[in-house]
Every structure is written in C-alpha cells, then in structure tokens.
Amino acid sequence: MKTGHNQLNPALFVFILYLCIYRSRQQNEPQVSPKMVCQQCSGAVLNGSSVGEFCSSFAGRVAGRCCLGNETSGRERIIGLDLSNCSLTHVDNLQEASAAFIIDLSINSIFNMSDAAFQGFSKLSHLILPAHMACPGGNSSWEKVELKEGKRLCKGQRNTCKQPGRTPANCPGYARCGPYGPGFFECSCADNYHGYKCLREGQFPTLQVLGPLGASTFVLSLLLWLTQRRKAKAL
C-alpha cells in the first residue's frame, strides 16, 4: 500500500490547525466597540457647530458625537470629536480620538483634567475648552490662544521639539525628537539604529527576535486548544 500521496502535508496541516485556533479565539473574544467615546453622551454632532462644519468640509461621516474619516487603508478613524454640553466634570481618557484634528469640550463644568489627557494627540490643531480652563501644555504649545463667547480656543498646536529653549535633551544621540501632543514629545531611533537608547547600528533582527516568539505563541495556543478539546470530550 502506497503512502504519502493521500496524506495531508504536515506543514499545511499545522497551518490549517493554527488558522482554526486563531479564528476560534477571535469568535470567543468579546467584541469591544473602538468608538465608545462617540457615545459618551447623547445627541450627535450638529451641522452648525465647529466640529460639524469641519466634518462637512472634510466630507466626514457623523456617528454620534464623532466625525469619522477614512484612512488610506480604508478603515475609519475619529477626525473630530464634539463633547460640548455633556455635563462633563473631568477629562482623563480620550485616546480613541487621538487622531482627531478638532475637539470641542466647551459648555462643561470640568474641574479636573489629566495632564496626559492629550498625550499622543499630535494632529490636534483646534481645541475648544470652557473659559476657565487652560490650554494643555500651556500657551506656548499653541500658535494662538483666545477667549471668545465664553470659550477658550487653542489653535495651531506647536511642535514641542522646535520650541526655543524647550528642545528635549533626553533623546540620545542617535534618536530623533517627534511631537506627541501639546507639551509632549517622543524619541524614536534614527534610520539604521535600534536597541537600548538607539545605540545599535544596523537593521533590527526581526526574524531572530520575533521568530522564536511566534513559535512559542503557536505552541502555547496549540496546547491550550488540545486541553480545551480534552475537557469537552470529558464532558
């Protein structure tokens, strides 16, 4: 009796098995909405509001309190957020809107806002706050700060790395400074450098580092799957 021709290729079998495990885990994991911030309070973005006008000019789509725009990959992201008149008393986590260009937090009794509330909001160019609040990062982090109709307007976020006297000195020699929200910066390795403090020259050894990690993850997933099957059969 011949063997080999009618048997499933071991590599193909492993790939199919891994795919089944991956899809099973995806189906079992709870699906969390990536835009919960859009439903933080009732209502929707109004056409005549600052965010509404911005959304119309950029051909965005209104979803609750958000204006959504398409990325080059085809996925939607939040480009505008209107949380005005939402009875907010504090602001601490708006990270779902970190790609927004405009955010309106006016007409709220906010008395506490985290210093890191807008960390990572490097694209934010127009922020509307209650009059009693200061612009994050201080006035020097914005091109223009003004009070108008009981609101504080913070316009044109400045690049922290390029502000006179505020150029971060914590980035090592082979790292470059990049804006990371009003008053914040981040250091990233320059081209052809990686590792601790960007001191290692050459390409990052992706295969050597991620290869064993991927293999370990696969083995653990396989063992978990086999354990679950044994438990199911036992029942």
Rank of each mutant, 00 (worst) to 15 (best):
S122E: 12
R166T: 11
G211W: 00
G150F: 01
C20P: 03
H132D: 15
S125P: 04
G48P: 00
I16F: 00
Q7E: 11
F185G: 04
F204T: 04
W225H: 11
N108Y: 03
G138H: 10
E146V: 12
S50I: 12
Y196R: 14
K155C: 09
Y193Q: 01
N6D: 08
N159R: 05
V37Y: 01
M113C: 12
I102S: 13
S109H: 15
G43V: 01
K231A: 11
R166I: 05
C171L: 07
K197H: 05
I103V: 13
K233H: 03
N108S: 03
P182L: 01
A100G: 08
V32D: 11
C187W: 07
A175V: 09
G69T: 06
H126S: 12
R77N: 08
Q26L: 10
L105Y: 03
T89L: 02
N93L: 06
S49M: 04
C41D: 05
D92W: 12
E53W: 01
C55A: 08
A99V: 10
R23K: 09
F184V: 05
D82V: 05
P164T: 14
Q7I: 12
S49H: 06
I103W: 09
P182Q: 06
P30Y: 10
V62C: 01
F185I: 02
L235P: 00
N70A: 08
A100M: 03
P10S: 05
V51T: 06
C20H: 00
G156K: 07
S221M: 03
R25C: 13
A97R: 14
R158V: 04
P10H: 06
I79E: 09
C86E: 13
G183N: 09
Q40P: 01
D92S: 15
Q7R: 09
S216Q: 07
F118R: 12
L224P: 01
L127E: 04
A116T: 14
R23G: 00
A59E: 10
T3M: 09
K123Q: 15
A232T: 02
P164V: 10
S57K: 15
L220S: 03
F58G: 04
A175P: 00
I110M: 06
C38N: 05
L223Y: 11
I128R: 08
C154S: 10
R158F: 10
G64Q: 13
C198W: 01
Q31Y: 14
Y174C: 10
L81M: 08
S50K: 05
N159G: 07
H194L: 00
D82H: 02
G211E: 07
M133W: 00
I78C: 02
N70T: 05
G178P: 04
Y196T: 04
C189P: 08
S141H: 07
N170M: 09
E186W: 05
I128S: 06
K162E: 15
L94Q: 02
V91S: 14
Y193M: 08
V45T: 06
L224R: 15
